[in-house]
Amino acid sequence: MSDMRINVLFFGATADIVGKRREELEVDGEVSAGSILDELRTRFPYLAAQKLHISIEQEYASSDSIVKAGDEIAIFTSVSGG
């Protein structure tokens, strides 16, 4: 298992809550999307109050989806376009 870096993007309400549009995480080897969400909720406690969605490589993912090195991850609240 080697260290890997993951870039996480934020949009809308999550960007306002964390005060930035991207965050770099360092993780050990492959991780689940759920463990990334847990780490972000620890770093940014205000995220814990939100119902969050996660995408991997611009596709909706579930918390047991596996994140690989270099994947583009995004965290956001329920969408509200239209």
């Binding site: 949009f11 309400a13 909706y60 995004a74 956001f76 609240t77 969408v79 509200s80 376009g81 239209g82």
Partner: peptide
């Protein structure tokens, strides 16, 4: 479906 799935947010 657009309102449910397309990642766009309204402030």
């Amino acid at each position: 479906e657009l309102k449910r799935t397309v990642p766009i947010w309204k402030k």
